[in-house]
């Protein structure tokens, strides 16, 4: 089943009197339980595409269907609802709330979803355990290492059991060993039946995915299945 279906999508930014064509004409289909890496040079439109896929932004033209419904027609509230229930974001800079501990950070999407306190706490705890942070739930972000912070962010993305995980350079701020730990986590999530799209600059990170889409100047340059994807074997250390 198609989770994402975009046809002839373009995104134009106006800067002063100049128009920046971040995305020119992109068509893509992504199915359930795919593992896709998006690559491309800086400024090619990867983040713009991810923001659109994540319903943070709407296209200037073209069609975007998310699990069958037309996103470009949605109101702000409907978009917020989709982001909350269907999409899990992981950012390069973690983007945790600095004053909240790990548990509360992970709980937050469930609060916006209106879930009861006891069930919510259980779910958040479970998600943190699944990323190997069961013993760090009361730590604030500044009391955690970079890798641990990113794992909290992954737990936050997973906790609502979304249809898709979107990660924009999730290892960009981590050293290669810690990055590899995050990639091991993504592998587990993928093997558990989830759908993942990640943006990366690194060829060896992209090779974890099952499909690689290359973008250049707002156009799809190539879209191919990885013949032999790399399956990480590092043990997640706490």
């Amino acid at each position: 089943m198609n989770i994402i279906n975009i046809e002839n999508v373009a995104k134009v930014y106006k800067v002063g009197s100049e128009e920046v064509h971040a995305l020119r004409d992109i068509s893509l289909r992504i199915d359930k339980n795919e593992y896709v890496a998006i690559m491309g040079p800086s400024g090619s439109g990867k983040s713009t595409l991810m923001n659109m896929l994540g319903c943070l932004d709407t296209p200037s033209s073209g069609k975007y269907e998310f699990t069958g419904s037309n996103v470009s027609q949605m109101t702000d509230n409907e978009l917020a609802k989709i982001r909350n229930k269907e999409i899990g974001f992981v950012f390069q800079t973690f983007n945790l709330l600095p004053r909240s501990n790990a548990l509360h950070n992970v709980e937050l999407p469930l609060i916006y979803a209106g879930m009861h306190s006891t069930e919510r706490k259980e779910r958040a705890q479970e998600a943190l355990e699944s990323v190997g942070l069961g013993d760090r739930i009361h730590h604030k972000p500044n009391e955690l290492s970079g890798g641990q912070r990113q794992r909290v962010a992954v737990a936050r993305a997973l906790v609502t059991r979304p249809s898709i995980i979107l990660a924009d350079e999730p290892t960009g701020n981590l050293d290669s060993k810690t990055g590899e730990e995050i990639m091991l986590l993504f592998n587990q999530i993928y093997e558990a039946g989830n759908t993942i799209i990640l943006v990366t600059h690194e060829e060896y990170i992209a090779e974890h995915a099952a499909r690689i889409i290359r973008i250049k100047d707002g156009l799809v340059e190539s879209d191919e299945i990885v013949a032999k994807r790399y399956i990480p074997k590092v043990k997640v250390a706490n």
């Binding site: 609802k81 909350n84 983007n95 709330l97 937050l108 979803a113």
Partner: peptide, 16 residues
Amino acid sequence: TKEIGVRKAIGAKRRT
């Protein structure tokens, strides 16, 4: 601002 962005990304509505 950044916090507002994060909250919106994980599903906070305008009225929230």
